[in-house]
Design a protein around this nucleic acid. Structure first.
Lengths: 353, 353
DNA sequence: ATTTACCGGTGGAACGATGCAGCAAGGTTA
DNA sequence: TAACCTTGCTGCATCGTTCCACCGGTAAAT
């Protein structure tokens, strides 16, 4: 095995293990320059790397954070994971990956295991309305940064929330469609039980009200299988199914607001399945602005989340929580999303007449 | 912090720490049934969880594996990561995520850190031709499963390779285009310096030869920026750029074989940018069969990799390497890919006349 | 004249779990 | 009845690191 310990380095350098430890732990001022050099040489020669388990056992600290996402197979989360890992690596942290599929039970088990692993900070992306299932761990001392979820009454006091303003985002998307003359607009999503989705739905209805229209007239398609209510594993399949059902109706919508881009791409495929043209017969708006949104045919109009910034902020907040002993009050970061208009939206067909 | 140690459990149950340890480590036969019950109760009451750092320090074992992918932002790798994590979790293992962007240096640093973390098994997905940069670690005892890379001369003897047959896959794709009457076919990729890509390229030229054609007549576009030669971060952008350049030429291709699906989707977008129709004016074949291939317009003809099976196999092999002391000879698993014909390919325009 | 604060280090007790050696009490054999 | 198991448990050294207390000598501050 690795084998090289701090004792061997100490012997090689002709000092005590404590001095090597001081050298390694940012206290080089405590020794003569020549000692420093001898130790550095010894480390090089032996190829010594500190044993992290021993270090962790002694200090209780570990440079690893957890990342809990619904599913990293979704490009949005894959992209987020990449940026988070990048930010973490820059500060010497590693990232442990967990796919929760938004199941509270799995989430709790994950967090318990992470805690037992010595991990004290986790970025949680499930956006579930209640955090009751993880409350005991938070009280024990686990630091949590919730991503894509705004603060709720009853949240633990130390929670940091980082999210785009979902209400504004969905409002932008919907208002865009209304301006194009659309009136029969559908909102398509899996289960609406998560915070971010509820907010997006509120942005949707808000836009109706602000335009002096009755949101009750809007079409809401909120399906999803029993065993996978949020449709995270197959958001696209869910969207496609929704499109099939919506377009079969006699009074079909002329525009659709999708809960996210994967769903929107599925909807677009479903529209084509029905022999209709996306952006001309039926307009579609997504949410997220994943890379593929711009590659689709037609390119997808969507609401952009500044994901690189958000990932970096998530790590920064988490790190400061873990490393400082201060357990200040909850903070929140709410970023403003941006509408990116592409070709999947166009004037309402009936308005053109 | 967590606080509950094995000593507290021992006191609560009225036994010694050793007995609790025996209980926890599958030696319950060594105590009376009533003692077993007392210990189980004590653990429950105190909510005890073994400290993994201490356990790891003592035993040298840890239930974590590393995953090194080019970039988890690519949906193919995101999907693979999801399946690998699922397989690992089923056996109580966790997965540490690393994005190497195929840089040997980053890879080496990652593996060194993973080793220092006590991790003894890694799934490596960069598919680089030489493993020299990680050889020292493999010799030290790190178990490696290479994914998407076939065995090479000079590989460490203990390496396990798991891959789809890239030669066959690219052959299938190219033969499909040749059968459709295409003769001016382009091959588009970032740097061809990785094993899997070279193999795909060989499958491409093989198909030409088998059809009695001169592969020298084929068009090869193998670009990529200096700082990101493989185009992993933006495979789609690379494809789009390739399409722009290829279609500007006087003697432009009628069909394009892409190194992977993201690249193919970029190429499709580039074809549309040029005012041409994918599948009619220009045919496109991808590789991977990511979820989005079926959602694209037109749906993408591609070569399917059985990714769930491969991820499960990767974990199974890695685990058996880590847990057994036997360091048997290298094994390889070469799966057969499958051509999925969709609408992005069609008869060659000139062949129709 | 006494206290204090360095200097460049060393010694050693933790951190929490493991697993081997060993130990009493009772059982079996010769 | 001595010699030897077996059973069910305990004691203790150990893993590699950290970090506090402390060394004896000197110089500055009180």
């Amino acid at each position: 095995m690795s084998g090289v310990t701090i004792y061997q380095v100490a012997r090689e350098a002709g000092v005590s293990p404590s001095t090597v430890s001081n050298f390694l732990n940012g206290r080089p001022g405590r020794m003569l320059p020549q000692t420093r050099v001898r130790i550095a040489d010894a480390i090089d020669r032996l190829g010594y790397r500190p044993n992290r388990a021993a270090r962790q056992l002694r200090t209780g600290r570990i440079q690893v954070i957890g990342l809990v996402v619904p599913s990293v197979a979704n490009p949005f989360w894959g992209n987020f994971a990449r940026y988070l890992e990048r930010a973490a690596l820059a500060d010497g942290y590693h990232v442990l990956l967990c796919n929760s599929e938004r199941e509270p039970d799995r989430e709790r088990r994950y967090l318990e295991e992470l805690w037992a692993d010595g991990i004290r900070g986790v970025v949680l992306c499930s956006s579930l309305p209640s955090l009751d299932h993880v409350l005991p761990l938070v009280e024990t001392g686990l630091s949590l940064v919730a991503f894509d979820r705004t603060a709720q009454a009853g949240d633990p006091g130390t929670l940091v929330n980082i999210s785009v303003d979902n209400v504004v985002g969905a409002h932008l998307a919907t208002a865009h469609l209304l301006e194009l003359g659309h009136r029969r607009i559908a909102f398509v999503s899996g289960s609406l039980r998560s915070i971010n989705r509820r907010e997006r739905f509120r942005g949707f209805t808000d836009a109706f009200e602000q335009a002096g229209l009755d949101p009750a007239g809007a079409i809401v398609w909120s399906g999803g299988a029993e065993q996978e209510p949020y449709g995270d594993l197959d958001a696209a399949g869910l969207g496609r199914r929704a499109a099939h059902e919506l377009l079969r109706a006699t009074d079909r919508p002329t525009a659709i607001v999708a809960i996210n881009d994967m769903c929107a791409l599925g909807i677009s495929a479903g529209i084509r399945d029905a022999g209709l043209r996306v952006g001309q017969d039926i307009s579609v708006v997504g949410f997220d602005d994943i890379v593929l949104a711009d590659l689709a045919a037609p390119p997808l109009t969507t609401v952009r989340q500044p994901i690189a910034d958000m990932a970096a902020a998530a790590f920064r907040h988490l790190r400061s929580r873990i490393e400082s002993t201060e357990t200040g009050p909850s903070q929140s970061l709410l970023l403003r999303p941006e509408l990116v208009v592409r070709a999947s939206t166009g004037p309402a067909p009936d308005a053109r007449e």
